[in-house]
Design a protein around this nucleic acid. Structure first.
Length: 804
RNA sequence: GGACGGUUGGCUCAAUGGUUAGAGCGUCGCGUUCACAUCGCGGAGGUUAUAGGUUCGAGUCCUAUACCGUCCACCA
């Protein structure tokens, strides 16, 4: 056998699995179905290390379940529309979306996806994902468009969607409305500007503080707390705004914090969520919308028309300073909401958008959350925290190009909404006109230009995946799905939305179990980001160490735990995988002539054989128990420990003389030959075969490639399975449990340890011969092992003195 | 401000309320090179964040505090 080179080996077996359809879902296969709502990776570039990490967690679980005899429904999809994909297409083709015609851009998107998608999917195959890649979907495909539009219409029928003009979260960069979940906090350095305004009819002034002075032309109100002694007397009076000369009334508002700034707040349309809320509390006030959808100010901003926020801020501050209205500036750091996809500060703009009404269902969402089993359990709290904090209905419309269109038109005459028929789906209203007239008799319609937000569609992944199966009976068995795997960053998005959709459409939980992975952090424990330049490439890691090593390393973190990148730890995993290779190589030399058909009396096994087989049973037991609770991290620990410490360091070292018996006979003499015979060697071989095969199987979920190679290389001849991944995890054999022998050998091990220590302290070689050695022990059984001790520690004569 | 997680050798992490708190990496010493671009053996290294409490007994349970991390909300 050769040395271990993972690269070609892994490619070989990946192709083998694909060709032989090892992971194909077969609805007729026996065994309980285990269905997985696999996360469809976003088409936004290459697979990153976080993907490799969390998908490995998932794949370890699925491989284990498969080897427990479950029938795996494990599809694979890609999420290839929406903002991230648009951004990839822009970057890849060096174009700008708003410089292009809508149709041209969409064509370019389709072309780019077609080009890039196979490469992306291959990256998932490269890390050994055992999906059935024939159960494959793309969220922009015709089938998925149809499904997504159908469910939208269904929601409308259930009176769960509505269109409304309202101030809405808006990204001026992407020029689209966004949802609450799309927000990300960012710390910004800014100024708190104190602005002095005259109270009309008096010579008095009041001062308010603001971080957004540029919105002065959009100012609609000033508030003080009704109990604020300083300002009580001014309530109801008006102030004259500087620059705009607008007259604004001072209105009492209990939400005003008397202790912040000057205790006077000015409200604009819209400076932030607090302004929107303030407008709701004071419905008589009319908004002054000064911002266009591209983030530039319009005519209502007077001389500031045409400017963007940052430009207008600079100019207005200058102007305020000139007229002496700027009392002072305080530098502050504060948190602003930015668009999670592009980092731009968000604005509020009043526009017409589509919403899914669900705020009334918060209690049901919480109830559903409790019906699902969470790993780790505490992640549920995050979900609950999010649900409790929901303040807005779900805005699902996006003013973008590459997404699934709304299947609707508006009557040109009466403005009534016209829905596409389900039989017509999928439709793009921009290129298709309704066949029937509006109820008002008119037959001309204006198409809806907006598209669905990606989460609108990806919240339907269980349905999308199940839709790939044609047989209705099987479909029923797949839902609710067994497992939803994902990372913790999208609990508020994908996870929540999927549960919400499932509630709205089916009133059922979408999956029975959720497993949540953490993140990979850089060696300092910080988040990886392209800006920081601390990104680790999984592709390079695979190239250098192999996917099995990367997977073994990824299992170092349990569910919910973050894992710091460490080259040293990767090397540690590499050592274990290499050791597996070498241990197998060594054993296979001795196992050449072994046949498992040859019968052997278990009772006649040597003590160390029984000891090893006993420990194997315990290892399997622990391994299974850990996997039951999704604790693959601990399962990995027990198999690592058993393999390296017990099997290699102890057992193999002890039995070498028994294995070398044949060779030593030929050579005539051997240093540690002892007096072993052929029968003794046979017993070792039986143990090696049994234990090695078990070790391979227990490692198979973690390191699928090398275990397959070793299985095919030797065990294939005597085992019936086509692939190790179609075999079963070994069952505990209670006949091999032997606590008595375990205790005896443990004592022998302790004695060996003492002798090693003694030799080590003397600076002797461990092989140095000891002429005479005495043991005082309470354990009467030790006598049985004096031959073993003599051989292992190279002792000529042992005397054992019993102690009472 | 709210919620959640964490704090154990230099580093990364283990320890169903029960002997002397364990591994791996690193470090120091020794030994092998006949499975192992190595591997093995041995040593040093810990007041378990802090302060109280419950208990025969606390790293583990309770209460506070501090610090770190994550999510959410937010002061104009």
């Amino acid at each position: 056998m050769k040395k271990y080179y993972p690269k070609n080996l892994e490619r070989k077996w990946q192709k083998f699995w694909e060709k032989e359809k090892i992971y194909k879902f077969n609805s007729k296969k026996k065994g309980e179905i285990f269905s997985i709502d696999t996360p469809p990776p976003t088409m936004s570039g290459k697979m990153h290390i976080g993907h490799a990490f969390s998908y490995t967690h998932l794949d370890i679980i699925t491989r284990y379940q498969r080897m427990k005899g479950k029938n795996l429904f494990y599809p694979f999809g890609t999420d290839d529309n929406g903002l991230p994909t648009e951004r990839l297409v822009e970057k890849e083709n060096k174009v700008k979306i708003f410089d292009m015609e809508r149709q041209d851009f969409i064509k370019l998107c389709r072309k780019t996806i077609k080009k890039l998608r196979p490469g992306l999917v291959q990256e998932w195959k490269d890390i050994g994902i055992s999906s059935d890649f024939d159960l494959n979907y793309s969220t922009i495909s015709k089938e998925v468009q149809k499904l997504s539009q159908k469910f939208f219409i269904e929601l409308y029928k259930k009176k769960r969607v509505y269109r409304k003009e309202a101030p809405c979260l808006w990204c001026p960069q992407c020029q689209t409305a966004i949802a609450q979940a799309d927000l990300e906090d960012k710390e910004r350095k800014s100024f708190l500007n104190y602005i002095k305004v005259n109270i009309i009819g008096t010579d008095k002034y009041i001062i308010f503080a603001t971080t957004r002075p540029e919105l002065l032309p959009a100012c609609v109100g000033i508030s003080v707390h009704p109990n604020d002694k300083r300002y009580k007397k001014y309530i109801g009076m008006k102030v004259k705004m500087p620059l705009t000369k607008a007259e604004i009334q001072i209105i009492p508002d209990k939400k005003t914090d008397m202790n912040y700034g000057t205790g006077v707040v000015y409200y604009c349309t819209y400076g932030g969520i607090e302004c929107v809320e303030w407008m709701k509390r004071h419905p008589n006030i009319k908004p002054i919308n000064i911002m266009n959808s591209d983030g530039k100010y319009n005519k209502k901003a007077g001389k500031y028309a045409g400017l963007k926020t940052s430009e207008a801020r600079k100019k207005i501050i200058e102007d305020l300073e000139i007229i002496g209205a700027l009392e002072k500036q305080e530098s502050i750091t504060h948190i602003v909401n930015t668009h999670e996809r592009c980092g731009t500060d968000i604005e509020f703009i009043s526009t017409k958008q589509w919403f899914i009404k669900y705020l009334d269902l918060k209690k049901d969402f919480l109830k559903f959350g409790r019906q699902i089993k969470w790993f780790p359990e505490y992640m549920r709290k995050r979900y609950e925290n999010w649900v409790k904090g929901l303040g807005w209905d779900w805005c699902i419309s996006r003013q973008r190009y590459f997404g699934i269109p709304f299947p609707i038109w508006y009557c040109q005459k009466c403005n009534k909404i016209k829905f596409a028929k389900v039989s017509e789906l999928p439709v793009d209203p921009l290129h298709y006109q309704p066949k029937t007239k509006c109820s008002c008799g008119n037959s001309k319609f204006i198409p809806e230009k907006d598209v669905f937000d990606t989460w609108t569609t990806s919240s339907l992944t269980p349905q999308i995946a199940i839709n790939l199966v044609k047989d209705k009976k099987t479909r029923k068995k797949l839902f609710p799905m067994s497992l939803r795997p994902q990372a913790h960053d999208i609990i508020n998005f994908w996870l929540f939305y999927t549960i919400a959709r499932s509630k709205l459409h089916f009133n059922k939980i979408p999956f029975k179990t959720i497993m949540v992975s953490g993140f990979v952090l850089d060696p300092k424990g910080e988040k990886m980001s392209k800006n920081k330049g601390n990104v680790i490439s999984p592709q390079e890691t695979i190239e250098k160490y192999g996917a099995d090593v990367l997977r073994h390393w990824a299992a170092k973190a349990g569910l919910g735990e973050d894992l710091r990148w460490s080259e040293e730890e990767i090397k540690g995993s590499k050592r274990i995988i290499t050791k597996l290779w070498n241990a197998f190589r060594f054993c296979s030399i001795h196992l050449k002539d072994f046949s498992k058909k040859e019968k052997l009396n278990l009772k006649e096994l040597e003590g160390e054989d029984k000891w090893l087989l006993h420990l194997l049973q315990i290892t399997i037991k622990n391994y299974d128990n850990y996997f039951k609770n999704y604790e693959f991290k601990k399962a990995r620990q027990v198999i690592d420990d058993f393999f390296w410490k017990k099997f290699c360091d102890n057992y193999l070292e002890i039995v070498k003389p028994r294995l070398y018996f044949e060779q030593s006979e030929k050579k005539g003499s051997c240093q540690r030959q002892g007096s072993y015979n052929e029968n003794s060697s046979k017993k070792v071989k039986f143990c090696l075969y049994t234990v090695l095969l078990s070790i391979l199987k227990l490692y198979a979920p973690f390191a699928p490639f090398i275990t397959e190679e070793l299985f095919q290389d030797y065990f294939k001849n005597q085992e019936k399975e086509k692939s190790i991944h179609q075999s079963l995890i070994p069952k505990i054999n209670s006949r091999l449990l032997n606590p008595k022998i375990k205790k005896e050998i443990d004592d022998v091990m302790d004695i060996i340890s003492l002798i090693r220590k003694y030799k080590s302290e003397k600076g002797w070689s461990l092989k140095k011969e000891i002429s005479e050695f005495s043991i005082r022990t309470k354990n009467k059984k030790i006598k049985k092992y004096s031959k073993l001790l003599k051989t292992v520690m190279n002792i000529k004569s042992i005397k054992i003195y019993p102690v009472k």
